[in-house]
Computed example of a mutant assay.
Amino acid sequence: MAQPIHRDTRGVFIIAATPFDQTGAIDWNSLDRLVDLYAQTGVTGLTILGMMGEADKLTADERRAVIDRVLARTDLPVVVGISDPGLGNLADLGRHAMDKGAAGLMVTPDRGPARDDRVEGYIHAVAAALGPDAPLVFQDFPLATGVPVSARLIRQLSEALPQMVMLKHEDWPGLTKISALRAQERDGAVARLSILCGNGGLYLPQELARGADGAMTGFAYPEALVQTVDLHHAGQPDAAEDLFDLYLPLLRHEQQPGWGLALRKQILMRRGAIACAATRAPGPRLTPTDIAELDRLIARLEQRLQR
């Protein structure tokens, strides 16, 4: 069983897609191959049932089955997204994941008025429902949730809840938030918080320079994220950014709102990890022109890597 995540966790936790066949059923063989591909690229861990994993389109039984399948397939630490409109459903799924060997659980603030007291009360309720032994990742993604959260409140929650050990930073723009959180830790008066960044990795070199520990996102070339983080942590920020820049056109293309998941799945299919690039309905479908654009970007990336 993998070790739980903690306040010094660093590296790349790749956000895993959920493969479907053309009928919309989960493709379990493709899920196995996808987990294997992720492991081969050198990632630190996996995050499943996130937004990229289309968790909101899965039934409760399907979510549990995905947890069971992935945790049986890999020895890497696995963080499980458990966000749900119902606190009871969230707690049941979280307990199931931890019982099966998850390394941590990821939650977002529930949608509603962006008031600090409401967000604070909700996260305290989540922590109480899950218990102190479940390490928590706070996903700060206001572009998706509609709930902005200040650095002050994130720190307040992390200090009040010892099990909240990691921030998935996806605020945009949000580089100053990373700086603010790290500045609070300089005198040692507050506990360190692990910070892994999302948004497709679009700003990863700058986030690492601000003090982030790595990435938690779903770019279809995880090795690019791994190598960028490794080079930065080895004290070679220029080399890290030079490598990252090779992938930037494709990474940027993946960040199109509403289309990014379809593009990522198309790439993963081309890489042999999944048999079908379908998203579960309702979801985007690529046109022949979309695929031709993607093919050109991939070909250009391969040429740059060869050079």
Results as ranks from 00 to 15, higher is better:
residue 151 A to Y: 12
residue 146 G to Y: 00
residue 48 I to G: 07
residue 265 K to W: 02
residue 42 G to A: 10
residue 6 H to M: 08
residue 285 R to S: 11
residue 2 A to M: 07
residue 272 G to F: 14
residue 17 A to Q: 05
residue 245 D to R: 06
residue 244 F to S: 02
residue 61 D to W: 14
residue 26 I to V: 13
residue 155 R to W: 05
residue 199 N to D: 11
residue 10 R to P: 12
residue 162 P to K: 14
residue 139 Q to Y: 13
residue 171 D to Q: 13
residue 54 E to D: 15
residue 282 P to S: 01
residue 257 P to F: 01
residue 240 A to Y: 03
residue 295 D to M: 13
residue 116 D to R: 13
residue 283 G to I: 06
residue 74 T to S: 11
residue 80 V to N: 09
residue 233 H to V: 06
residue 108 T to N: 12
residue 195 I to L: 07
residue 307 R to E: 00
residue 15 I to P: 10
residue 177 K to N: 15
residue 223 E to W: 09
residue 237 P to C: 04
residue 145 T to H: 07
residue 25 A to W: 04
residue 131 G to R: 09
residue 71 L to C: 06
residue 281 A to Y: 13
residue 169 H to T: 12
residue 22 Q to E: 14
residue 9 T to Y: 09
residue 233 H to E: 08
residue 61 D to C: 10
residue 123 I to N: 04
residue 26 I to Y: 09
residue 277 A to N: 02
residue 42 G to H: 04
residue 218 G to C: 12
residue 117 D to M: 07
residue 210 R to D: 02
residue 5 I to G: 05
residue 82 I to K: 03
residue 3 Q to F: 12
residue 151 A to L: 13
residue 70 V to Y: 08
residue 122 Y to K: 15
residue 243 L to H: 13
residue 165 V to W: 02
residue 247 Y to T: 00
residue 284 P to V: 00
residue 208 L to H: 09
residue 211 G to E: 14
residue 31 L to I: 03
residue 67 I to M: 05
residue 271 R to M: 08
residue 224 A to T: 11
residue 100 K to F: 06
residue 128 A to F: 03
residue 79 V to G: 07
residue 233 H to R: 14
residue 108 T to S: 15
residue 21 D to Q: 04
residue 244 F to V: 03
residue 197 C to R: 11
residue 4 P to M: 15
residue 60 A to V: 11
residue 213 D to C: 10
residue 124 H to P: 02
residue 217 T to P: 01
residue 289 T to N: 11
residue 93 L to W: 00
residue 254 E to G: 08
residue 49 L to T: 10
residue 38 Y to E: 01
residue 162 P to Q: 10
residue 120 E to P: 08
residue 79 V to Y: 06
residue 241 E to Y: 03
residue 88 G to F: 12
residue 49 L to N: 05
residue 156 Q to V: 08
residue 231 L to G: 03
residue 289 T to A: 15
residue 89 N to I: 04
residue 79 V to L: 12
residue 97 A to G: 14
residue 138 F to N: 06
residue 94 G to A: 00
residue 239 A to P: 01
residue 56 D to V: 15
residue 192 R to H: 05
residue 201 G to R: 01
residue 246 L to W: 00
residue 213 D to W: 15
residue 115 R to H: 14
residue 164 M to E: 01
residue 6 H to R: 12
residue 210 R to N: 04
residue 36 D to L: 01
residue 123 I to T: 06
residue 251 L to D: 08
residue 266 Q to P: 02
residue 114 A to F: 02
residue 127 A to M: 01
